[in-house]
């Protein structure tokens, strides 16, 4: 039985390089998620707006994001902008733009869902108790909305991390790319390294996403 690549990972700084690649992907997703959550709250409020025009526009935006694969959006922003505007976007900037564009729509939809899930009677009771509109929002609606939103936003983080694996397609050196480089470099001495390296990459993603989605599930159960 030939070695399956675990030794290759232990050689030199290979494992550290993989972790650095992983951090690149995670960093992009954390930045995108942070911006998405902020913009998404705004988008969610717009989605529940009373103006039909705003609602339709937001609906179209959401549909575009829902239908277009993130990879297509990445290609459009990364290759398209260079072509049309002569802009030379850094790959990482392009990735953050795309994931934020996507995340904002998803977060907006979550915020919209949370806002409309608050029964009307909550607003009416608050008004009947003599609360002003701001007070009702601050003390009655907001706490309930936030409770519903936190598990869902945490889930968005794992989805974002999983989606950022796509950035290797626009030439960002993240964990899969590093894995490929390691495999190539050791082709002669360890031809079966692909197994160990990709198994480890698989586990790395799992070890990051799993605890986060467990946390989301637990919070959802507790606050339901």
């Amino acid at each position: 039985m030939q070695s399956l690549g675990i030794d290759v990972l232990l050689k030199g700084s290979n494992f550290l390089r993989l972790l650095t690649g992983l951090w690149t992907a995670v960093r992009i997703s954390l930045i995108s998620v942070a911006i998405s959550i902020a913009l998404g709250i705004l988008a969610g409020m717009l989605m529940t707006s009373k103006s039909t025009l705003v609602k339709v526009l937001m609906r179209v935006y959401l549909e575009i994001v829902r239908i277009m694969p993130q990879m297509v959006l990445l290609f459009i922003v990364y290759f398209g902008t260079t072509r049309v505007f002569g802009l030379n976007l850094e790959a990482e900037t392009a990735a953050i733009i795309v994931f934020t564009f996507w995340g904002t729509a998803e977060m907006g939809d979550l915020v919209r869902g949370a806002l409309i899930s608050i029964p009307r009677i909550q607003y009416e009771s608050a008004a009947a108790l003599g609360m002003s509109e701001t007070a009702a929002f601050r003390y009655v609606i907001l706490p309930q909305t936030v409770r519903r939103l936190i598990p869902l936003s945490i889930n968005l983080i794992t989805r974002m991390i999983k989606t950022t694996s796509l950035v290797m397609m626009i030439g960002i050196v993240e964990v899969l790319k590093v894995g490929q480089q390691i495999i190539e470099a050791n082709r002669k001495t360890s031809p079966n390294a692909a197994f160990g390296v990709f198994a480890v990459v698989f586990l790395m993603y799992f070890l990051i996403c799993w605890p986060v989605s467990r946390l989301a599930a637990r919070l959802e159960k507790r606050w339901a």
């Binding site: 794992t158 999983k162 989606t163 694996s165 796509l166 290797m168 899969l176 894995g179 990709f198 990459v201 698989f202 993603y205 799992f206 996403c209 799993w210 989605s213």
Partner: peptide, 9 residues
């Protein structure tokens, strides 16, 4: 909890 890209690889 893992991306399809990694699963395919």
């Amino acid at each position: 909890n893992t991306p399809l890209l990694v699963q395919l690889f």
